[in-house]
Design a protein around this nucleic acid. Structure first.
Lengths: 208, 208
DNA sequence: CTCGATACTGACTCACGATTCAGTTGTGGA
DNA sequence: TCCACAACTGAATCGTGAGTCAGTATCGAG
């Protein structure tokens, strides 16, 4: 097997990617070291060579995924356009209708966080940073006169909660909610929270 | 052990209750038959005598919990008061600030549902019935002229999503969100979705 | 070229936890 | 009172998968 010898970093990343994939597929508890190894055509022992323990592997995998998500987010928020455009891009990505393949992983992550403090830390951090970034764009939008939002922190919180809730439903029970409706609702919430005037592209039910 | 011989139903219920407890404690994957048995002071073999398989036990446990939740809900909604009062009681109970000890279980349940069709069925059913019941009260309220809500189904959907999202945060990262704020937000959403006039008890930020 | 560090492997060990089974005992009906 | 059955147990079995270990092969530095 494994004709190629890799540097520690490369191998670790490969392994983490494979681990994330397996966790999405089978769940963190049912993760088998041998599956991760097999996915890359290497020996199980190699996995343990890089991560001493299955637990450590899982923790590292979640942390890796969190970092990736955060990086992606900052890329979206870093562009130089209006705060609204950036905010919407971020929301669209976070939305379960956007190709956020990550949702399975984070639902799994929540469950694990319920009893593994390490993971709770990771998940909490991701959460915190996410919301922090949101708050920041909103604040920028307010400063630029784009938004009318008295409490960016609260708005971010409510928006995130709504998105999380919808995402769970979309992910766990796919096909029950139409993307059409979902997108409209999210848009509606964004408009409401940011005090935007313009109606959505979709025919948003005209609640004041 | 087990001085007492019980009828099938009694024993099954005891076992299911214990199983639910263990799942909340350790998670569905880490559930050990022997723990469930030990919790009741009976032999592991007995557990398998009533539920042939660990999987079946877990499935039954979730179904049992779902039934209990539904029963509770119907009790709340069955009272004879205004639709608003009943609706609020239900929401208060479902809210993570209410003593919904069940949230850990259902977060776990979502994760398991990601790959066990049986459980997805159970969870989906609970979800469906929950929302159905909500829609019903809302419709009643509309009929009685209490609410102004053009689309009860959509309102129920949005409300549930918000509650789910908040609940996850409260449950996974306890102490991050103040109940005070949470309750205010939920109230705000209820008022908005149902077209109620009266402001919340809390000082709801005055978005129109 | 060659040596030491480092990536990597195959073949264990080992514990654990689900499931099985051959009984044992309590119970309700005749 | 006795029996048949249902509830229940203790002691196996048995598969599985994490973690260990004694190497092997490759690479870069000198």
């Amino acid at each position: 097997m494994a004709r190629v010898r890799l540097g520690v970093e490369e191998r670790r990343e490969e392994l983490l990617r494979a681990a994330v994939e397996q966790i999405e597929l089978r769940g963190a508890a049912a993760l088998r070291i041998s599956d991760v190894a097999a996915a890359l055509g290497v020996s199980s022992a190699l996995v343990l060579y890089h991560f001493e323990t299955k637990e450590k592997l899982v923790a590292a995998a979640f942390a890796y995924a969190a970092d990736a998500d955060l990086a992606r987010l900052h890329k979206l928020l870093g562009r130089s356009t209006s705060a609204e455009r950036r905010l919407r891009a971020a929301v669209r990505w976070y939305s379960p209708t956007g190709q956020a393949k990550g949702w399975r992983l984070w639902i799994e992550g929540w469950a694990v966080s319920l009893r593994e403090p390490t993971l709770r830390e990771v998940a909490g951090d991701l959460d915190r940073r996410w919301r922090g970034a949101l708050v920041e764009v909103i604040a920028e939008g307010v400063a630029a006169g784009e938004f009318d939002c008295p409490d960016p922190k609260a708005s971010a919180e409510r928006l995130t909660a709504l998105l999380d809730g919808l995402a769970v439903r979309m992910t766990v029970h796919p096909g029950v909610l139409g993307r059409r409706a979902m997108d409209a609702w999210v848009d509606e919430a964004v408009v409401r929270e940011l005090g935007l005037r313009r109606g959505a592209k979709q025919e948003t039910p005209g609640r004041s």
